[in-house]
């Protein structure tokens, strides 16, 4: 069943996102994060500190990284065998659609196959990278050391069950840290997809599940 937001998140959503991304807010926020001095006490999950609003964008619903900015290439990721991978090399030198999702959000998982079929049909060879922006719970099942292997196993399962061709990656995410991938990229709703140019510049942002159509990428 499609949710209401699914209904509104097609073309209308994209136009609104594009409009929103024209504002300077996200750029200022991104620059602000870069400007945080190394000595600043940040919420890092180690001493139990929660972030101040300013450290994570000023409010709950922040905007995704803006069109025209460069996607960071130092995002920590692991492949579906739980081995460390290089995000930069995955997106370098080719137009790429990076799809952030998490296995805990069914609508974001359901979007993977649709995206793959769309890109295969209308993507003109666009590279696709699926990134699970989270690690799943292991507190009672081996602790933090199991987080990446357990999540990677779930990625393999999703790939098999949804009959996907592309590999999937895991990006550990501390939602309470300014350095966390969701805060850095401004992700609050999943899936969120970024269309990158060959040089890594964000050309389009798609928030929420998409009814993909020719010309979207």
């Amino acid at each position: 069943m499609k949710s209401k937001a699914t209904t509104v998140s097609g073309g209308l959503l994209k136009r609104r996102i594009a409009s929103a991304l024209c504002t300077a807010g996200p750029i200022i926020f991104a620059l602000g994060l870069l400007a945080i001095p190394a000595s600043t006490v940040l919420a890092d999950g180690k001493d139990g500190t929660f972030p101040s609003a300013e450290q994570v964008g000023g409010e709950v619903f922040i905007q995704p990284m803006a069109v025209g900015t460069k996607m960071p290439t130092d995002i920590e990721i692991y492949d579906s065998q739980a081995k460390k991978a290089d995000f930069g090399s995955l997106v370098a030198g080719k137009p790429t659609l990076v799809v952030f999702f998490i296995s805990a959000v069914p609508v974001s998982v359901a979007q993977l196959k649709k995206t793959e079929e769309f890109v295969d049909k209308y993507g003109h060879g666009t590279n696709v990278v699926f990134v699970n922006a989270d690690t799943m719970g292991t507190h009672l099942m081996g602790g933090p050391a199991q987080a990446i292997p357990s999540t990677a196993a779930t990625m393999r399962l999703i790939k098999k069950e949804h009959n996907l061709k592309r590999d999937m990656y895991v990006a550990p995410n501390d939602v309470l840290s300014p350095k966390g991938v969701s805060t850095r990229l401004g992700i609050r709703g999943l899936p969120t997809s970024f269309l990158l140019s060959a040089n890594g510049t964000i050309e389009k942002v798609f928030v929420g599940p998409q009814d993909w159509k020719k010309g979207d990428i």
């Binding site: 949710s3 209401k4 937001a5 699914t6 998140s9 929660f50 994570v56 709950v60 952030f100 998490i102 296995s103 805990a104 959000v105 069914p106 609508v107 974001s108 922006a133 989270d134 719970g137 995410n173 939602v175 309470l176 969701s182 805060t183 992700i187 609050r188 709703g189 999943l190 969120t192 928030v207 929420g208 599940p209």
Partner: peptide, 21 residues
């Protein structure tokens, strides 16, 4: 009817989730 497969942990309201959540 589930939007997410687990409840947001305490203090985890910033977690990326279903856009309608």
């Amino acid at each position: 009817g589930m939007k997410t497969t687990h409840e947001a942990m305490l203090g985890e309201e910033l977690m990326p989730a279903d856009p309608t959540a």
